[in-house]
């Protein structure tokens, strides 16, 4: 079992802050229409991507969702290329063709964010087969939401991953809402983790606002997967701080509920406090992180703004070859 070293803890904090500041910036840019289309911020859920991606290596795969910026960042994506993609520029991860919901990169083992809820889950089975056939101990972490678990493909895929003992970690980010539908009203057994019983695989619940807890539980599942014992289902309980997207005021949920989570369960605030209390980090170091990250985010905006638009001629040329 991997040990949570001081360095690792600091890295977790850095990743969480990086995701938060990046997302805050994307919301600003969305509000002034520099980013258009759909934007689904990951604010409040940062600890899951940070913890999970710290528990795997660069060569492992991740499969992401429509709320996927955090997964890309935690897997090591370049903020410049991410921001360029969000601004639809030629230098973006997808050359401006994908936008927020479709960032992917083979180098990072990032097999794609996805505009279809649950759409990535069957793909994870293929990544799992690939890892197993290759025989080098590689694993895949498949992120999805509580909403996706009510889609038929969730059941198809987990069943298939289980019967073939595929090295896939199914990581449900239960942020309590599928747009406006509360998961308590949508999931018959309430806890997604309980659904693991149907596939005879481990199913565990973890506090998705605690990066160390996520790291530990995912590490265990990774170890199981690497040793050929097959998939696991992890349900990380979390909360979507904002609405479904920046223009959604989330009037369907109780204000006090959101206030509670923002006050008590903010992963950025809580993890900073924890590391300060443990004396893993000093307030000065945290300030340093913040400054460095804010600068990186600003730099990504500058890079994106200065980047060229995709070429229309090239687009029309490519269309003929599709």
């Amino acid at each position: 079992m991997a040990v949570l070293t001081k360095e690792l803890k600091k890295d977790l904090l850095k990743t969480i802050i990086k995701i938060r500041r990046f997302e805050e910036k994307t919301i600003q840019l969305y509000q002034i229409a520099k980013i258009w289309g759909y934007l689904h911020p990951y604010i409040g859920e940062e600890a899951i991507a940070a913890g999970a991606c710290a528990a795997i290596s660069k060569s492992d795969y991740i499969i992401s969702t429509h709320r996927g910026h955090g997964h890309s960042i935690a897997k090591g994506a370049d903020l410049n290329r991410m921001m360029a993609e969000l601004l639809g520029k030629a230098t973006g991860y997808c050359k401006g063709r994908g936008g927020s919901m479709h960032i992917a990169d083979t180098e990072l083992g990032m097999l794609g964010a996805n505009g279809i809820v649950g759409g990535g889950i069957p793909i994870s089975v293929g990544a799992g087969f690939s890892c197993k056939m290759e025989g080098k101990g590689r694993v895949a972490v498949c992120f999805f939401s509580d909403g996706a678990t009510n889609n038929g493909v969730f059941h198809e895929a987990l069943n298939m991953a289980a019967i073939f003992s595929l090295p896939v970690i199914y990581l449900c980010e239960n942020n309590m809402y599928a747009i406006s539908m509360c998961s308590d009203d949508a999931i018959a057994c309430r806890d997604v983790a309980k659904r693991s019983a149907a596939y005879d695989i481990p199913g565990v619940i973890v506090d998705g606002t605690d990066p160390e807890a996520v790291y530990n539980i995912v590490s265990k599942a990774v170890q199981r997967a690497r040793s050929g014992k097959g998939p696991s289902l992890i349900e990380a309980k979390t909360y979507r701080f904002g609405g479904h997207h920046p223009n959604d005021p989330a009037e369907y949920r109780d204000k006090s509920e959101a206030e509670y989570y923002k006050k008590e369960k903010d992963p950025v605030v809580n993890y900073k406090a924890k590391l300060l209390e443990e004396k893993v980090i000093s307030p000065e170091e945290i300030d340093g992180y913040e400054k460095e990250i804010i600068q990186m985010v600003e730099q990504s905006v500058k890079f994106a703004e200065e980047s060229p638009e995709p070429s229309l001629e090239q687009f029309l040329e490519e269309v003929r070859s599709i």
């Binding site: 889950i121 089975v125 293929g126 895929a157």
Partner: peptide, 21 residues
Amino acid sequence: NTPISEATIVGAGIGAAVTGY
């Protein structure tokens, strides 16, 4: 040889294809 899971038969193909198979 898979169970009756058409979406995942295709999805598994996609996932394996994008990872080198």
